[in-house]
Simulated scan of single mutants.
Amino acid sequence: MSQDATFEDGRERPLNLGAQDTDDLRVISSLAQDAVFPITEMRWQARQHRFAMLLNRFRWEDDARDRHAPERVQSLLVVDNVVAVSSQGIDRGDQDLILSLLAIEFSPADDGAGDLVLTLAGDGALRLRIEALDVTLKDVTRPYVAPSGKAPDHRE
């Protein structure tokens, strides 16, 4: 019997989550919100039908922020079954560009395939054409103090 993961499951342990439906993807999207990454940390392995990103993810699941500074952790976001990748609003020639992930959404087609859209700050986006939804988010380092010392804030 399997049980859905909760935010409490990730308290002080590394995350290792998978999404094969839109409900699971919403959890991954919320945990990856405000992740920052250099443009050089994205890879599309066309032969393997895999797209991967190394993110500096804010630890939204950490409910102990009142006892210590806000933290980030490096995480791998991996999407399998990718048949095409396109981008909008991103200067792919700027090797110093730092991107910020805002959301991950899936627009399914009738056959289970569809588009996975990764919305970035500054009106940028990545569109992954996929044959089936298969996304993983896995922490690969220990948490570290967020360089800003603050949690991201979207209030205007």
Rank of each mutant, 00 (worst) to 15 (best):
M1I: 06
Q3G: 02
A5D: 06
T6C: 04
T6F: 06
E8V: 09
E8P: 00
E8S: 13
R11W: 11
R13A: 11
L15Y: 14
L15I: 14
N16M: 02
N16S: 07
L17S: 07
G18F: 02
G18Q: 11
A19V: 03
A19K: 05
D21W: 04
D21P: 03
T22S: 14
L25F: 10
R26H: 04
R26K: 15
V27E: 00
V27M: 13
V27G: 01
I28E: 06
I28L: 15
S29V: 07
A32C: 13
A32W: 01
Q33Y: 01
D34Y: 07
D34T: 06
A35F: 03
A35I: 01
P38S: 15
T40Q: 10
E41N: 13
M42P: 00
R43H: 09
R43F: 01
W44T: 01
Q45F: 09
R47T: 07
R47C: 00
H49M: 09
F51E: 03
A52G: 07
M53L: 15
M53S: 10
L54Y: 00
L55V: 10
N56S: 14
D63T: 12
A64E: 15
R65P: 00
H68I: 06
P70R: 08
Q74P: 00
Q74K: 14
L76R: 05
V78G: 06
V78T: 15
V79L: 04
N81F: 11
N81L: 04
V82H: 05
V85E: 10
S87C: 05
S87V: 06
S87F: 11
I90N: 05
I90R: 09
D91V: 10
D91Q: 11
R92Y: 04
R92D: 11
D94A: 11
Q95E: 13
Q95N: 08
D96L: 10
D96Q: 14
L97P: 02
L97S: 12
I98R: 10
I98Y: 02
I98M: 09
S100M: 05
L101H: 06
L102V: 06
L102P: 01
A103W: 02
A103R: 10
I104K: 08
S107P: 00
D110H: 08
D111T: 05
D111N: 15
A113T: 15
L116E: 03
V117W: 02
V117I: 15
T119Y: 07
L120D: 03
A121E: 11
D123P: 01
D123S: 13
D123H: 12
G124M: 05
A125V: 03
A125Y: 07
A125R: 15
A125F: 01
A125Q: 15
L126Y: 07
L128H: 06
R129W: 01
E131M: 10
A132P: 00
L133C: 03
V135N: 12
T136V: 03
K138D: 08
D139S: 08
V140F: 09
V140A: 09
T141E: 12
R142Y: 09
P143F: 13
P143R: 12
P143I: 12
V145M: 08
A146K: 04
S148E: 14
K150E: 14
K150G: 00
P152K: 13
P152C: 09
P152N: 12
R155D: 11
R155Y: 08
E156F: 10
E156K: 08
